[in-house]
Structure formats: structure tokens, C-alpha cells
Computed example of a mutant assay.
Amino acid sequence: MAHVLYYSSLCPDTPPFVEALKERNISYEAVDITESMKNLKRFLQLRDERAEFNERKKWGFVGVPVLVTENNQFIFDFNDILGTTCTPPVI
């Protein structure tokens, strides 16, 4: 299983997130949730089933961009990719 990036081309948080991935040569399957109903449904099924989204939903956020790593870790903030948070993820 490869990394999957769920994002929206309409979201202002997407470009810096994608840039952080690119700078680190992290490859992924790109899923633009605003591109098709199929992509949106795929994302919503994931978001509705995973507890990792609960805090974001509580604050009214959609939950994108999010990188789902091949070891099923959910990365919502590009600072986690950059290693500027306390606990950088394992990618």
C-alpha cells in the first residue's frame, strides 16, 4: 500500500502541504476530493470511520489535506512532515 494524499484543489492549505511532500521526495497517490463524486465519497467514507478526524470535524474542518501513510498514520499538518513539531511522523 502506498501513501495517499486526500486534498482539495480549492483548499489554501494544500499547496504548502504538497510542497513539503515534494521537498522530501515523498511519493503518494493524489486524491482531489473536489474533482469527482467518486473521490469525495472515498474520502468521506474514510473520514466518517476514523477517529483521527474527530477533532477536525468538531471544529468544522473538512480534514484535508491529509496524508495517509502506508503504515496507516494520518498526517494533517505539513509541519509534521517538516519535522518542526514535537513528534515527527514515520513516513
Rank of each mutant, 00 (worst) to 15 (best):
H3L: 00
V90M: 10
E70V: 11
V18Y: 11
P15G: 06
F61L: 14
K22V: 10
E29F: 08
P89K: 03
S8G: 05
G83N: 07
L40S: 12
V62Y: 12
I26A: 04
C86K: 13
W59S: 13
F74R: 02
V31Q: 02
E52S: 04
D32K: 00
C11Q: 07
I75A: 04
D77P: 06
L67H: 01
P89R: 03
K41Y: 10
S9V: 05
E35I: 05
I26F: 08
V4D: 00
V64G: 00
D77M: 08
D13H: 15
K41S: 12
P89I: 02
G63V: 04
I81W: 08
Y6T: 01
N71Y: 08
I33E: 04
A2S: 14
F74S: 04
N54P: 08
I75C: 05
I33T: 08
C86M: 13
M37N: 12
A2W: 09
M37P: 07
T85W: 05
V66C: 00
F43H: 06
L44G: 06
G60L: 04
T14I: 07
C86Y: 07
V62G: 04
H3S: 06
T87D: 11
V62L: 15
S8C: 01
T34H: 11
K22T: 13
V18S: 09
R50Y: 04
T85C: 09
V4Q: 00
F74P: 02
F43N: 06
V62T: 15
R50S: 08
E29T: 15
F17Q: 02
I33M: 07
